[in-house]
Design a protein around this nucleic acid. Structure first.
Lengths: 348, 348
DNA sequence: TTGTATGCGTTATCAT
DNA sequence: ATGATAACGCATACAA
């Protein structure tokens, strides 16, 4: 019979106590170099691996972080936005010795908050990363705070930031910047495909756009807007109404890249030339923006870095001696990245 | 002091034994309806949640399945291929009461097998889903079998299927089918962007293509081929050499959609019209194929369904009384899906 | 049908 | 610096 070795097997073979083995396994400084060496060798020869279940039960911590994201489970796979977030978080977890789990939550369910709180109550993780739109669910955040549970919000709005720490870009400024960029190129009439309701960061982008219009003396009826839901298809559907509006915009700003690609698709279908007939810009600089034709002008939103930063902040709080500190918000720089879907408006 | 409730708290309040609570929690039939009701009510009022760590330690099983996929951690986020796999697996897990974890493994590391075996040895999961190229690592599979550990291979080749159960499409037949489709449309000279080495399923696709050529009396020098690595960029780079070859193909077949989109990008950059000047087809029917312009003709590879099937098979083995059965391979139907990136060749 | 007792493999507490 | 011992919360063999 050949059971898998336990910590006691190691202790016995190394001729030390169980506690000592545990100490070297956890990098405690209070163990003589000589003994440490011997234990390590024994671990090697036995091919011993710590039992994570036992460790989690005994230690009360499982070193598991959960990234929760909105999903439909039926519709399209999650966009590159989430992939980027996950990749960044994963890298930080690897470096910091955490495990990462991703938790899809159907945003149309009526018990989303309950599902998320269950992850806490059922001790499935010891840290939470909330992505939009959950990161802006104030009710949910209040419940989490009541449990005094570590959480980081991604791209959360002002209301959320008062309740919990967050990471993200300054979406209002980003919206302002793209608009200014377009105005600088010569555009005066705009179309805007907004994000879904309750996405605070999406609204912030629109608000920034509006401020740029005002700042440049273009207030009033210089734009026409539609709502999308961040999917390719919503971009496809929103474009025609915008383009055919009596205002006839020369540039379309989209709340994210997926919708921008949808708008481009519609434009192609209508026989329009991009950017000759219509300029289009996206938001987020996800990988799609580089693979479509023409390459999409967009605003860089370093989601990978944001994912990384999120777990770094979680780890920081984990290390902290005091219980809960005041919420901190980390803002990551954004930038307009000019590619080939924008040109000066062609006056007719 | 308000500790989180344990099973003993529930038992005490409900006035039953600990085991009885455990029974209703695990759906055992041997408990009277009356008592079950009472326990359930108590669980509700106490907001009791089972401690998964304790359950895993005591039960020896954690109901955790791991989906391992190739990643670079530095390069582009994983393609839609993996997202689809994960989504399907996740749905099946939800239905079957499993948890799903995804494990990224850097395919360029020199200890990939070790990393994967560690998931078994360290008891991090009780079932493994291996995606390419790991699903074709015969050495690794031998080691897994030696541990008698449940595993399902995605899109594995013949060699792998002898060692472990698998799910996937018939890649050789799929390659044959696209080629026949193109030949039927009128094409006679082809370019082929192959997948990376060691990807057995990618080679199978190429083999099927070759067979179609022979079957249609086009053996000999009717094609020119390049190798890619399944990324967009490799498609971008491979295209010009193919198009400018003295053979001058009228249709390009790509080993997956990402490379096809790359080829399309290159064609656009060269001022070519698709499909007027060159027809392009992809492989997998991932979401990108619907969002590029023109919509990409490709072959449907139902990865979501495959992911679902993989955990279903794992669950089946889990339920089975006997230890290890003979490997079984499930083949999912594929189909050429015609969109707008292919037309009859324009003879000059 | 129900309850009791034991063990899962580790970390934490407290001695030494 | 090291070790003995007590939790940790649950499943399960066994007894009733």
């Amino acid at each position: 019979m050949n059971r898998t070795p336990t910590i006691d097997d190691v202790a016995a073979l190394a001729g030390v106590g169980r506690t000592t083995v545990s100490r070297v396994l956890n990098g405690s400084p209070k163990v003589s170099p000589e003994v440490r060496e011997r234990v390590l060798k024994t671990v090697e020869t036995l091919n011993y691996k710590v039992n994570r279940q036992a460790r989690a039960l005994a230690g009360g911590r499982m070193h598991m972080l959960a990234l929760v994201y909105a999903s439909d489970l039926d519709t399209e796979p999650n966009s590159f936005y989430y992939s980027g977030l996950e990749l960044g978080a994963l890298r930080a977890c690897t470096e910091l010795g955490f495990n990462l789990m991703t938790q899809a939550v159907n945003q149309n369910a009526d018990n989303t908050a309950e599902q998320i709180l269950d992850m806490i109550d059922a001790r499935r993780c010891d840290g939470l990363i909330l992505s939009p739109p959950f990161s802006d669910d104030l009710e949910l955040l209040a419940q989490i705070n009541q449990r005094n549970f570590p959480v980081i919000c991604i791209s959360s709005g002002a209301g959320s930031q008062a309740l919990a720490s967050g990471v993200g870009i300054d979406d209002e400024a980003a919206g302002y910047d793209v608009a200014c960029y377009l105005i600088g190129v010569g555009h005066r009439r705009f179309g805007f495909i907004r994000g879904p309701e309750r996405h605070v960061s999406a609204d912030d982008r629109f608000t920034g756009f509006l401020r740029a219009l005002t700042a440049n003396g273009l207030a009033g009826e210089a734009y026409v807007a539609e709502r999308g839901n961040f999917t390719f298809h919503s971009g496809v559907e929103a474009f025609p109404a915008l383009y055919n509006a009596s205002l006839r915009p020369t540039a379309i700003i989209c709340g994210n890249d997926d919708m921008a690609v949808g708008a481009m698709f519609s434009a192609h279908r209508m026989g329009l030339d991009i950017p000759g007939d219509i300029s289009i810009v996206g938001f987020d600089d996800t990988p799609v923006s580089e693979i479509v034709w023409p390459p999409l002008t967009t605003v860089r939103h370093p989601v990978k870095q944001i994912g990384y930063e999120a777990v770094r902040m979680l780890h920081e709080r984990d290390q902290a001696t005091s219980a809960a500190a005041a919420p901190q918000s980390s803002v990551i720089p954004h930038a307009v990245v000019a590619r080939e879907s924008v040109s000066a408006p062609c006056e007719r």
